[in-house]
């Protein structure tokens, strides 16, 4: 594998967006890009990552390779990332290490790190990428992040309801409750403020606040978040990157006893 990002902060943002959700991950590298799936220890949150060749300045992978890493170690190396440096990832045919090469052309400086790969035997789940949903919402990632930060302070459960009035985020804590209603809108001058809802059925689902606080860490990857809900499947929270690919979080809901 030889894969070069023209801006090393892209890879840092990707890794930082899920390093607090899962501790280790296998990157599956092939000619169609880098893909990965990981499940958190409580088996409630699944992270699905896709970095297609379009995200790289140059990308070459001669044969499919699995690259297993501890995310805390990788994240430490990526603290060196800067937007003025490129980052090339190298993995040999019989991989036992990942080489990261940062190069700053203006500063005529290069940094090289080697990281030992780990053999990860992780549970994988069969996720249908065309999973049917009753409700799809596209909205501003900044707006969603603010709502999650504000409301989750009040309760460890966070409820999402979608009906004819729009989408309602609500919490009902021991000492306080809160509710935010958003209706579809189109802002031609600032499309990142658009909110669209398509719905075949109303939904009313609750999630644990702590997982939502992890999910919003990926909002640095995209201006928009896409939400998919159904009563029969986990919810999908997805951040799509400008150059293709992105990160999706499948979150199992809570239920009344």
């Amino acid at each position: 594998l030889e894969a070069k990002f023209d801006d090393s902060t892209i890879f840092k943002k990707i890794i930082d967006s899920f390093k607090d959700s899962v501790s280790q991950i296998n990157f599956m590298c092939s000619e169609s890009g880098i893909e990965a799936q990981a499940i958190d220890d409580s088996r409630v949150l699944l992270v699905s990552l896709s970095i297609p060749p379009s995200c790289f300045e140059t990308y070459r992978c001669d044969r499919p390779t699995t690259v297993g890493v501890y995310l805390s170690s990788l994240s430490k190396l990526l603290k060196s990332a800067s937007s003025s440096a490129t980052l090339t990832l190298y993995v040999e045919d019989q991989p036992d290490e990942l080489l990261l090469l940062f190069e700053e052309s203006k500063a005529s400086k290069s940094m090289e790190y080697k990281m030992k790969l780990v053999d990860i035997t992780a549970d994988m789940l069969e996720v249908d990428s065309d999973m049917k949903s009753d409700v799809s919402v596209e909205m501003s990632g900044v707006e969603f992040t603010k709502i999650v930060r504000d409301l989750t302070q009040l309760s460890d459960s966070f409820t999402v309801s979608v009906g004819k009035d729009g989408i309602v985020f609500s919490v009902d804590g021991e000492t306080a409750s809160g509710k935010v209603l958003l209706q579809p809108k189109e802002d031609l001058a600032n499309p990142e403020n658009n909110l669209s809802i398509s719905m075949t059925k109303t939904i009313d689902l609750s999630f644990a606040s702590k997982y939502l606080l992890d999910i919003i860490k990926a909002s640095t990857l995209s201006n928009m978040i896409s939400l998919k809900f159904s009563e029969e499947t986990p919810a999908l929270f997805e951040f799509k990157m400008e150059k293709g690919g992105g990160i999706g979080f499948y979150l199992a809901p809570k239920y009344d006893e």
Binding site: I39, S42, R43, V44, L45, L46, D123, M124, L125, E126, V127, S157, S206, A208, E232, T233, P234, Y250, A252, P253, K254, Y255, D256, E257
Partner: peptide, 13 residues
């Protein structure tokens, strides 16, 4: 409220 896990929805690969 109780938490569901992903195993209730997805099959192992």
């Amino acid at each position: 409220m109780k938490q569901r896990t992903l195993m209730a929805f997805f099959k192992p690969k």
